[in-house]
């Protein structure tokens, strides 16, 4: 997977009940498996196939990706603030490798 860290934007704090957006970026080539190399051999598929977002240990958002998701996937979604805690974001690719990032939020 990528050498660089994923980038995640979560507000540091939010009011209870507030709905806010989370934006994520990760570096990955998202090789489709449809391309061929110089010798005409197919380049094996290697994409981030799953993205999950857990909040305080519970999965709150998941994305299944197909090869048609662009390289360096951008994923944005919403959350409703209920309590302070920690978000864990995990990207898993076809090689089984995964990368994670955590962000905490203060709600009150």
């Amino acid at each position: 997977m990528a050498a660089s860290r994923p980038r995640v934007k979560v507000p540091k704090s939010a009011a209870k009940g507030e709905v806010f957006q989370i934006k994520t970026l990760v570096t990955h080539k998202m090789e489709t498996g449809l391309r061929k190399d110089k010798d005409g051999q197919p380049i094996p598929r290697d994409i981030v196939n799953t993205f999950t977002c857990d909040f305080n240990g519970k999965t709150v958002f998941t994305m299944k990706l197909e090869p048609a998701v662009s390289a360096n996937p951008y994923i944005a979604f919403f959350q409703r603030a209920t309590e302070s805690g920690e978000y864990t974001f995990t990207w898993t690719d076809d090689t089984g490798e995964s990368v994670s990032e955590t962000k905490s939020i203060q709600v009150g």
């Binding site: 660089s4 994923p6 980038r7 934007k9 934006k23 970026l25 990760v26």
Partner: peptide, 17 residues
Amino acid sequence: EDDFKNPAFTWVGLAED
């Protein structure tokens, strides 16, 4: 315009490290 949409910023993150 948005540093969290601009994919170049993962490279910037690498350089920060």
